[in-house]
């Protein structure tokens, strides 16, 4: 079961990363949150403190997906879960990310206000990716979607990660 959750975390994280890139140029709510972050801001998301993190970079109001990295010395904000099982609960939409944050299951290195922005962004991505019933139950987010789930999956699969160092 643990291995299955680990695999789920990896797949969903990868999907979240690519969806972030797609939605950053489509969804106006996400663009508003992005505008709160400084230019060239580098974000990282990991399932636990010691795991490699997915890295994203804001560049000209758009998001570049830099893939998974272990060296996070240049990262401005790192968000990670207290343990992998907590990550699974959130990534599999069994628990809202906002509640998980309030419960102390999510930790971060960096500025708190930027972290809140990132949490709103993750909420929006999850609301797009999850089936409506899951999103309604765990995210309580009645989102007016600006792209269908199928189109988002398709575009996300075609999204390439940036090459080279972050």
């Amino acid at each position: 079961m643990k291995y299955l959750h680990h695999l789920t975390d990896k797949i969903i994280l990868s999907l979240i990363g690519r969806s972030f890139v797609v939605l950053s140029s489509i969804d106006v709510r996400m663009q508003r949150e992005l505008s709160y972050l400084p230019e060239k801001f580098i974000l990282a998301l990991a399932v636990d403190h010691h795991a490699p993190a997915l890295v994203f970079k804001k560049d000209k109001q758009k998001i570049k997906y830099c893939g998974s990295h272990e060296d996070l010395s240049k990262v401005d904000l790192k968000i990670f879960f207290k343990n992998e099982e907590f990550a699974y609960q959130v990534l599999a939409a069994k628990e809202g990310i906002r509640l998980a944050f309030s419960e102390g299951k999510i930790l971060l290195e960096g500025d708190l206000d930027f972290a809140v922005s990132f949490i709103y962004i993750l909420e929006i991505i999850e609301a797009y990716l999850m089936a409506k019933s899951s999103a309604d139950d765990s995210l309580e987010y009645d989102l007016d979607k600006q792209i269908s789930r199928f189109s988002l999956f398709f575009k996300a699969l075609l999204t390439k990660k940036e090459k080279g160092e972050i």
Binding site: Y36, R98, F101, S102, L112, D113, A115, V116, S117, E140
Partner: peptide, 16 residues
């Protein structure tokens, strides 16, 4: 409003 929306306290508030 922008500042309050980006305070961690708001994440722990009732409702969204």
């Amino acid at each position: 409003i922008e500042k309050a929306m980006h305070n961690t306290a708001v994440l722990a508030s009732a409702g969204k």
